[in-house]
Design a protein around this nucleic acid. Structure first.
Lengths: 295, 295
DNA sequence: ATTTGCTATAACCTAAGGTTATGGCTGACG
DNA sequence: CGTCAGCCATAACCTTAGGTTATAGCAAAT
């Protein structure tokens, strides 16, 4: 929705007609008519019904209006505020992480790190790839640990380690309990879908497309451990990262590596115009060590 | 100040340069340079100083930014709402849930629901209390299942069941392995802190304050299951909800109920100006049944 | 001295948003 | 019933905010 669309829609809604909105906006009536038509085309649904040559807001318009009205109220108060940047406290490490790391790698790293650095405060915040850039820019986190993040403007990345997607399956689905499997072998089973999962979802999707494998996923989750738990309930197989799979093994389900392997990188991200504190660098070095030399 | 001026200023401010802002906005660098110049001319004061060829925000820019940031976020919310309204939802259930429910309750409910409703698509999205209102208003979810949510404008709530906070502890911390414990008994041990956890954190904090119990928490996490895993690593005890505790039991750690009990409610939230679809209502009824009649 | 990265300006282009003119529909009024 | 006022939609054409590539100047790093 273009900004002009917002302006025009708001004006029509509060004044009640295109003609009144045109007067309010100091433009001609056909201009408003055309912008509204373009907005509705772009949105894919009508904002107003045309009843006997007059406009009547649709239910969708009413839902949108409350959001848009907030924009207007905030625009009116734009010049009345001072900013107070949150100061980064010394001796704090603020880490964003993909939830998958919260089962084993990060707890282990924290345990080891605290032996030598008992006074350092550690804040962990789970997030998805699309939240990282904002969190870094707003200085909410010092660095993030994510799988295959996309390039981000002004962000530096280093590779921690390589990992892979694996399949978790209820044991009764594959009585022979294979430790390696190919994706063709899941075609006859219900699959728990991972949606909006960014790079790992793309990795899997691309392979499925390349191999012309169709899967039916009418349960979809955003969080991998929930997929693992649904698999444990016999809802289907799931393809998730190995960190989450190993951290959520339970009775009745098993893990199989996928052949050929679906590999991805765990990466650390931080702003390139802000160097990491000493304590943060040290922790990141420990993560590197643990990730590449598992016990 | 035009809306485009707001967009451009915001992008420059958060990315740090005109070149980065241009990349972020997917336009050429001179375009951003011109819009900024036009905005400054219209405002009558500079937003950025040009120091050695680089932009440095002025005091005025800093004053404006927090307000403009709200406008910017609200505009993004409007756009998200518009996109979500576009989606025609038939036979979809979009659920926001506190992560704690993802270990047992929700997978079990999905398993049972799908027996009678195999064609319904279910989307699960974990979130925290502070994300719920926005997600409902933007129609990303039909309803949310959260612990002790605060009253939210335009949101209707129903209580699903009562639950409680419990303590998870490494067995070596309490060799007698109590099944009930009072909070005084944790005073001598390291505690894994839960920060920014909203109502459950408040519940615990209030009790600790009332009983004048001090705890030392130099590891803090936002996500309860990570606290459980850190407890498993011997990092300390943690006070978390019973759903997460039971869903993350592992070797070497145990659960104790807290006496007197720290109880809270699991609630379902949805917009009061939008009735739930039939399939969503049915699922919610099943959640009610399962939560109050555990097997 | 050269390279890299950033900003500002010139010259030109594009399309969103603007105009006037006009037609169709509906309800009010005499 | 005819006329008028008010509203919306479309046609034909116009304007300019915002876009592009090219390039110059400056500062810091190498």
């Amino acid at each position: 929705m273009r900004l002009r669309h917002i302006e025009v829609f708001h004006a029509i809604y509060v004044t009640g007609s295109i003609t009144n909105a045109a007067n309010f906006l100091h433009v001609s009536q056909p201009s408003v008519s055309k912008v509204l038509a373009h907005a509705e085309m772009q949105l894919g649904f009508a904002l107003f019904q045309r009843i006997k040559g007059r406009l009547v807001p649709t239910a969708e318009a009413q839902m949108l209006f409350s959001e848009i009205d907030k924009v207007y109220k905030q625009i009116r108060s734009v010049r009345n505020s001072a900013i107070n940047l949150k100061k980064v406290k010394t001796g704090n490490i603020n880490i964003g992480l993909t939830p998958a790391l919260g089962f084993d790698l990060i707890p282990t790293a924290v345990a080891q790190y605290k032996i030598d650095n008992p006074q350092v405060n550690i804040n962990l915040q789970t997030m998805h790839n699309d939240e990282v850039h904002q969190a870094l820019l707003e200085h909410k986190i010092d660095f993030a640990l994510m799988f295959s993040p996309p390039p981000l403007s002004g962000v530096e990345m280093q590779t921690i380690c390589e990992s892979q997607l694996v399949m978790m399956y209820p044991n009764e689905f594959y009585p022979q309990q294979p430790s390696t499997i190919s994706l063709e072998d899941i075609a006859g089973h219900q699959v728990i879908g991972i949606w909006d999962s960014g790079p790992l979802g793309d990795l899997l999707w691309n392979r499925l497309s390349e191999d012309d494998i169709e899967v039916n996923a009418d349960i979809k989750v955003q969080t991998y451990f929930i997929a693992a738990r649904l698999a444990a309930q016999g809802m289907g197989v799931c393809i998730i990262d190995e960190f989450t799979a190993r951290g959520n093994l339970s009775h009745g389900i098993s893990i199989a590596e996928i052949a050929p392997a679906l590999k991805f990188n765990l990466k650390a991200l931080h702003l390139d115009n802000k160097s990491l504190s000493h304590v943060a660098s040290d922790f990141l070095n420990l993560i590197n060590k643990l990730a590449n030399n598992p016990m």
